[in-house]
């Protein structure tokens, strides 16, 4: 590095560079500050902007996270509204493409059976009382990164499509 003589001292001081690096530092602080705000808001994981519900007001409601993280537990809560199920079974389908991006940790309550049909898996749950809200929880662990389309449907009812972003 070029040495400069300043008074009696030889030093590779570079005030121009120093000033530029201070500006860069400021910009960096602002950027990381915004990142923290975004994280608090839920743009980088759990938080108010991440929590979403698909199909509000329909017989099938799905609570999910818009932004989730790689290898961090993710919950998907499904509520089947009263009267949406005919008979004793609730048949919930999830697209296979999404299920390949996550590891299923567990499903509460445990499904009676799982059926494969084309591009989706159908989870069959026993329903004791179709006249009340039946809640189900899927616990996932994302194993890939990127944005994925999730399709959750109720047989004989609606199907909801939404996107989920998995951060590295």
């Amino acid at each position: 590095m070029a040495m400069e003589r300043i008074g009696d001292i030889e030093l590779s001081q570079d005030l121009d560079y120093q000033r530029r690096s201070w500006i860069a530092q400021r910009v960096g602080w602002i950027f990381f500050g915004l990142l923290m705000v975004a994280a608090f808001a839920g743009f980088l994981g759990a938080g108010p902007f991440s929590a979403a519900t698909a199909g509000e007001g329909t017989p099938l409601q799905v609570q999910y996270g818009r932004f989730v993280r790689h290898r961090a537990p993710v919950e998907m809560k499904i509520a089947v509204q009263p009267g949406a199920v005919q008979g004793e079974e609730a048949r919930i389908s999830v697209n296979r493409e999404y299920l390949e991006q996550v590891e299923i940790q567990n499903v509460v309550p445990e499904p009676d059976s799982v059926e494969t049909a084309g591009d989706r898996l159908t989870y069959v749950f026993k329903v004791a009382n179709a006249g009340e809200v039946n809640k189900l929880t899927f616990n996932f662990m994302p194993i890939t990164i990127g944005q994925h389309e999730v399709r959750v449907g109720l047989e004989g009812g609606p199907e909801h499509t939404f996107k989920q972003m998995i951060y590295p």
Partner: peptide
Amino acid sequence: VDKFLNDVPLLLIED
């Protein structure tokens, strides 16, 4: 690259 990695020295008291 050297400046980016290691920064530059700065005189705080000069003469």
